[in-house]
Nucleic acid binder design. Structure first.
Length: 479
RNA sequence: GUCCCUAUCGUCUAGCCUGGCCUAGGACACCGGCCUUUCACGCCGGCAACAGGGGUUCAAAUCCCCUUAGGGACGCCA
């Protein structure tokens, strides 16, 4: 029994996309479920788009979600280095081997030439594949030309006509190789391309299962060819379906937030995001939905990953995030929420009071960033809208407000019981009930028709403040 | 255009491999009701799907074929 080793191999070209992070998540869950090793590798061979800043962003995003890697940059490991730009010598060794064995060859064709050829093929309805022009240039001659300053790419010499891919999710698939022809494995500037390095790295890092998005399915035959040419043992492949936007096209910016840090900034809880993502394309054997990290790890299996693409459902994510928010106790909630409070300066207020305020609106929000608009009523009375004004103009309204103000005057603070007793008295005295009583009080005290429970508002706001607000409203009504 | 993948409620999905228990189950959203003498939360209920056509079979959402639709790939990106 070989120990499971899987990897997540992002290229540091920007923020991690939800599709990619879900791939990372599945790799992580599989590794942990199997007691295996989860490896992070940075695929930075595209020098133009890769950067150190982006690497750090990747680390941060993964850490936020708790996808800690057992081997990789920062933490190290026995199969490093874990950044491809630091592995060039390794690649060179295998490249030379291929070249010597005529399994690859130098290609001197210019980009313009190839583009033209591709154009022509396409127009003639043929597959845009390489003609094989440089295939027979002897290696010695090619090396000489390069020595003299010529630039050459290296192409893989495809000799088989068909490649079989065995995939855990999709089964056995046959690919005709005339789809791609002799593909490039090294650019003229000497940097090896993805399809080559991924094979060398996965093989050398002893990756047992390659779990990745199914947009890579078409690359797999090329990679298998390289595995074989180099004499490496094949890993198992599992190509997981894509994540789509609401219009069923590949999820992109126009569908809303798509990068991990955007979700983080909006106030999604990592455990909720983790849970939601796990259920996007995978299902629990008992169809449970709210699952902790450990439950997810315990229940995970590649077999239960669905084969079809999934639409990212923001509504369901919101619902789930709301559940996680409501599960937090008052201290936990405050510690995750305080960073999202922008409407006031926290240091000016008593912390326990702030905690109570935040806790009082927890049913109202599905993401933490919504907290501001819900707690602002505790700091400032807002202007009533037309509908509210109608309610304030009810016959009983001013009597309700006057009586309520009168009753709370003698209190330093109100308890829930005080509040209940007082509203009972006010109701009895004025004949107002239901909306005429509670909605009117709510509007007078906050300016709004929705908000936290009335008893929360009444106990959290000092009677002095409440009276001030009521007087403001009373003056407004009498005008 | 060529190749590859996929196809159950609007969405995420269970069921499919190992046909009968499926008058197709759950969740989100939506709509009703209840609970709070208010808004939510919560609870209860409702709406809503096997893409189409052929087979195979006593029996098909489940197995086979075709069509259609969607997605992906066809890079000196990963």
């Amino acid at each position: 029994m070989s120990i499971v080793r899987v990897r997540f191999a992002p290229s540091p070209t920007g923020h991690i996309h939800v599709g990619n992070v879900r791939t990372a998540l599945f790799n992580y869950l599989f590794a942990k479920n199997q007691n295996g090793t989860f490896i992070l590798r940075i695929e930075d061979t595209d020098l133009e788009r890769s950067s150190i800043e982006n690497e750090n962003i990747i680390y941060e995003d993964l850490m936020w979600l708790g996808l800690e890697w057992d081997e990789g940059p920062v933490v190290g490991g026995n199969y490093g280095p874990y950044k491809q730009t630091e592995r060039t010598l390794i690649y060179k060794k295998y490249l030379d081997k291929l070249l010597e064995e005529k399994k690859a060859y130098y290609c001197f064709c210019s980009k313009e030439e190839l583009d033209a050829q591709r154009e022509k093929n396409l127009q003639e309805g043929k597959n845009p594949i390489y003609s094989g022009k440089c295939k027979n240039i002897p290696l010695a001659e090619a090396r000489q030309r390069i020595e003299q300053g010529e630039k050459a790419a290296i192409r893989f010499n495809v000799t088989e006509s068909e490649v079989k891919v065995k995939d855990i999710l999709k089964g056995e698939i046959d690919f005709p190789t005339n789809m791609f022809g002799d593909f490039i494995i090294v650019r003229p500037d000497g940097t090896p391309v993805y399809n080559f390095v991924v094979v060398v790295d996965d093989a050398l890092m002893k990756i047992t299962h390659v779990i990745r998005g199914d947009d890579h399915l078409n690359n797999t035959p090329k990679q298998i060819l390289i595995y074989k040419a180099l004499g490496f043992e094949l890993p198992e492949f599992a190509h997981i379906p894509m994540i789509l936007g609401s219009d069923h096209s590949k999820l992109s910016k126009r569908h809303g937030d798509t990068s991990v840090n955007q979700f983080r900034q909006k106030g999604y809880l990592p455990e909720a995001f983790f849970n939601y993502l796990a259920l996007l394309g995978w299902s629990h054997p008992e169809e449970k939905e709210i699952l902790s990290r450990q439950e997810l790890i315990n229940a995970f299996s590649l077999e239960r990953i669905s084969k079809s693409a999934a639409v990212f459902d923001f509504d369901k994510l919101n619902w789930m995030n709301g559940i996680y928010i409501r599960e937090k106790n008052i201290d936990e909630l405050y510690s995750v929420a305080k960073g999202f409070i922008k409407c006031v300066e926290l240091s000016k207020y008593d912390e326990q009071w702030l905690k109570n305020v935040v806790f009082s609106v927890r049913e109202k929000i599905s993401v933490l960033s919504e907290i501001d608009e819900h707690i602002k009523i505790f700091f400032k009375q807002s202007e009533p809208d037309d509908e509210s004004i109608k309610l304030l103009n009810l016959e009983t309204s001013s009597a309700v407000l006057e009586r309520y103000a009168e009753e709370i005057k003698k209190f330093e603070t109100l308890t829930v019981d005080d509040y209940k007793a007082i509203t009972k008295i006010v109701g009895d005295a004025t004949g107002a009930k239901g909306k005429a009583l509670f909605m009117v009080l709510r509007i007078a005290l906050t300016g709004q028709r929705t908000g936290p429970d009335m008893d929360k508002i009444a106990t959290l706001l000092s009677p002095k403040t409440q009276i001030e607000r009521i007087n403001n409203v009373l003056r407004f009504i009498k005008k």
